[in-house]
């Protein structure tokens, strides 16, 4: 099997609410997959279960590392999951507001570096070199995402669109194999959305990542995705290429009502 992410039978409850009901999903390497559905369908909850923020009640999540090794992600804490190569952004932006843009991205390098307390105090050559690597690679990511001008600004002072891009930059710094984007275009104007569209494609090509994307902007979804999963009331109701999904009667019903 080649899938980089394979989810089977994932379910999640909040009290009496079944937020996810037996959801299956797979993502192939370097694929862009969209996850769509009406508000409250459970898309974000799905992300939260994948990334270990909520423990799912049942189901399995397997991820294939670049080495080809399969590993099960259920029950791992979020940081371990990130270390395995899954990175995400948040629907309601969660940057580190009092840190600079560059530092936000440097934080992303944490799980790929190793300096500890003693290293920080004595600053041996290896640690200095590592710091240098962190700064350089963070700069590089920021340059690619068009944030070079604001590297030393505080994250909270950025305009909204730039904050969304910074979230992506920060996620990329963790060197993921699979990138989860939760409504990256939310709150962006049409021009910014068009730029984002290009950017996501570019990211996939440069970083050779697979991307799983939640988005309400159908233009973006249709033009970017290789495949689309549609959810409603916690259940997966359709899956297919953009053309197939557009014609699917269940999807049309979910979006337009009876």
């Amino acid at each position: 099997m080649t899938a980089i992410l394979k989810v089977t039978g994932l379910s999640m409850n909040f009290g009496g609410l079944r937020a996810l009901d037996d959801v299956d999903l797979r993502v192939e390497p370097r694929e862009i997959v969209a996850l769509i559905g009406p508000n409250g369908a459970g898309k974000t909850t799905f992300f939260n279960c994948l990334t270990g923020i909520y423990p799912p009640v049942s189901g399995t999540i397997f991820m294939r590392a670049s080495s080809g090794k399969q590993s099960r992600l259920n029950g791992l804490p979020p940081n371990k999951i990130t270390a395995k190569g899954m990175a995400r952004t948040f629907q309601n932006i969660r940057l580190f507001p009092e840190m600079t843009v560059l530092e936000n991205v440097m934080i992303g390098c944490h799980c790929r570096t190793s300096a500890g307390i003693l290293g920080a105090v004595f600053r041996p050559r290896a640690v200095r070199a590592e710091e240098q690597r962190i700064v350089d690679s963070s700069y590089k990511i920021l340059t690619r995402l068009g944030l070079t001008d604001v590297v030393n600004d505080l994250a909270r002072n950025l305009p909204y669109g730039a904050q969304r891009r910074l979230e992506i930059a920060r996620a990329l710094a963790t060197e993921p194999a699979l990138l989860l984007l939760d409504e990256p275009a939310a709150g962006m104007n049409p021009r910014e959305t068009a730029e984002l569209n290009q950017l996501i494609g570019k990211i996939r090509d440069i970083y050779e990542v697979a991307i799983l994307l939640i988005e309400h902007d159908m233009k973006l979804v249709m033009s970017l995705s290789d495949r689309i999963y549609v959810m409603e009331y916690g259940r997966r109701i359709a899956v297919g290429t953009p053309v197939e999904v557009k014609k699917n009667p269940a999807v049309i019903k979910a979006y337009l009502g009876e």
Binding site: T51, I53, P77, P78, N79, T82, A83, A87, R88, F90, R94, L95, F96, P97, E98, M99, I107, G108, H110, C111, R112, R170, A173, T174
Partner: peptide, 10 residues
Amino acid sequence: EDEIACQAMG
């Protein structure tokens, strides 16, 4: 600054 984002950064 943000415990959840911090964990999500590995």
